[in-house]
Amino acid sequence: MKHLRLLVLVLPFLLQAYSSKNIATKTKNAKKWVTLFNGKNLNNWKPKIVGFPLGENFGNTFRVEDGILSIRYDKYDSFRNRFGALYYIKKFANFRLKVEYRFVGNTTPGAPSWGFKDGGIQYHCQSPSTIGLTQSFPVCLEFNCHGGNGKEERPTGEACISGMTILVNGKKNASNCTLPDIKKTFHGEEWVTAEIDVNNGKIRHFVNGEKVIQYENPRLDSTNALAKKLIIAGNDVVKDGYISLQSNSHPMDFRKVEIMEY
């Protein structure tokens, strides 16, 4: 009886100690958001623009002003298909990426017709050091950012591929871009939160917290000349790559770029 009373007295303290230890372990192992854009400069980012070597920021295309990472073309006489992207220097595999963006101003003269409010967040990109001088786009996956013209719907968040294949609802993609299931169009210059969740070959796109599309099994496309060069020993499975922000001819702003690795 004495032992039972002692157990009753001690048990709450043991449970509390276990609970505290368990919470501490979970906190220690909790995933953390890491800021990729520091709000001050382009440290750890490298531009690659068509016709220019990696690292050359032609026309000050990518710049930081008032804590905003901006893409501008005011020093271009004409766009002339000078597509580009700003690459983060580290490779990522499984992660959740969060980017806040908006379209501003007018499309650059000489831009392609589809360039109006068109941009992208590229991921699982080939190494920027392997991109050719005149190569327009890397081999990659993409969260395609779109904006509306105030009339027609033009949903953001579709899944686009360059030199890859994916499975959408269990079927191989039928085109380079697949429209999202949940269609959201933003017509003004409002900020939009894009999120990309990549977990062991399963990928989801989110717009303002809502899942809009999912797909899986990205592979290098052996019928694509650029992708074919990246296939090593017959292995075409894509498990990791670089992240970049596209410059497709319409001015854009980014105020947050964060990542949580799994």
Score class of each variant (00 low, 15 high):
117 K>F: 00
213 I>T: 10
62 F>Y: 12
94 N>D: 14
185 T>C: 10
136 S>D: 12
130 T>F: 10
15 L>C: 13
81 N>W: 01
98 K>Y: 07
185 T>S: 10
105 G>A: 06
154 R>V: 07
32 K>L: 13
190 E>K: 03
7 L>D: 09
93 A>C: 11
194 A>K: 04
124 H>P: 08
223 T>C: 05
215 Y>I: 01
141 L>P: 05
169 N>S: 14
78 S>N: 09
124 H>A: 10
36 L>M: 14
46 K>W: 01
165 T>H: 14
25 T>Y: 13
124 H>T: 02
84 G>Q: 02
121 I>F: 08
235 N>E: 14
97 L>T: 02
152 E>Y: 13
258 E>H: 07
169 N>W: 02
14 L>I: 15
116 F>N: 00
15 L>T: 08
54 L>K: 07
10 V>W: 15
204 R>L: 09
42 L>R: 08
146 H>W: 14
91 K>T: 14
187 H>C: 04
6 L>K: 15
236 D>G: 13
81 N>S: 10
161 I>N: 06
77 D>S: 15
27 T>M: 11
75 K>L: 09
21 K>I: 10
13 F>K: 11
180 P>K: 10
38 N>F: 11
197 D>Y: 14
234 G>F: 02
3 H>D: 15
4 L>P: 08
251 P>H: 01
64 V>E: 06
1 M>F: 05
160 C>P: 01
212 V>F: 06
143 F>I: 07
210 E>S: 13
185 T>I: 05
222 S>T: 11
157 G>R: 02
194 A>C: 05
153 E>M: 05
20 S>Q: 12
256 K>I: 04
50 V>N: 09
155 P>Q: 04
176 N>F: 03
145 C>W: 01
262 Y>R: 15
60 N>V: 04
96 R>D: 03
217 N>F: 12
28 K>Q: 13
98 K>W: 08
172 K>C: 01
9 L>N: 12
91 K>I: 12
12 P>R: 09
161 I>E: 07
